[in-house]
Simulated assay, not measured.
Amino acid sequence: MFKVVKNRTFTIPVKVMTPVDGGHLAEEITVTYNYLPTDQTSTFDMKTAAGTDAFLTAAVRRLDDLTDEADNPLPYSDELRDQILKMPHVRNAVVAEYARAVTTAAEGN
């Protein structure tokens, strides 16, 4: 049976490839997403920075598993979310993982 949920959310780890000298560092952020209906997602122009910003604000409920440079845990805030989602490598990973999560079908479909 399929459960109909009014405000569905889902939480998944997102692998982020952070540029460093000599290549990339694989890092991970835990993202809680709002599951958006297609009539809402179709309103975002993902070819523009403003459209992607609007999508990320609507889709990302919270970010977890964040630390500062000294590995001290950082508490979640919307301001911190917005700061992190301005980083191109993070926003690309978060958008791609949302798309993958909502379009994955059961094997055999």
Rank of each mutant, 00 (worst) to 15 (best):
S42L: 06
E97M: 10
M87R: 15
D82Q: 15
A50D: 14
V31I: 03
T103H: 03
V94W: 11
P13T: 05
A105S: 02
D65Q: 14
N7P: 07
V5H: 09
N109V: 01
R81T: 13
A58Q: 02
P75V: 10
F10M: 04
G23V: 10
P73W: 05
E107R: 10
K6R: 10
Q83R: 11
F44G: 04
I84L: 14
V14S: 00
A101E: 05
D78V: 14
A70D: 15
G51A: 05
M17I: 08
I29L: 08
A101T: 06
T52H: 05
L63P: 08
A59D: 11
T30W: 11
V4Y: 15
T67V: 15
Q40G: 04
Y33N: 00
T30S: 05
E27S: 13
L80A: 01
A58D: 04
R91A: 14
S42C: 07
P75M: 06
F44E: 03
L56C: 12
L25F: 15
L63H: 07
A93H: 13
P73G: 03
L25G: 08
T52S: 15
P73R: 01
V31P: 03
D65I: 07
S77A: 06
M87C: 11
A70Q: 15
V14F: 13
V90A: 04
Q40L: 03
T43C: 03
T9L: 06
P37F: 08
V16I: 06
E97N: 08
A49L: 07
A70K: 12
L85M: 12
E27T: 15
T9A: 00
K3L: 11
T30N: 07
S42A: 12
Q40F: 10
T11L: 00
A70G: 02
T43L: 04
D82K: 15
P37C: 00
N7D: 15
T32M: 02
T41G: 01
G23I: 11
R62L: 09
M17G: 10
A70E: 08
A105H: 02
P73L: 01
K86H: 09
A54C: 02
R61A: 08
S42K: 12
R61M: 11
A49R: 03
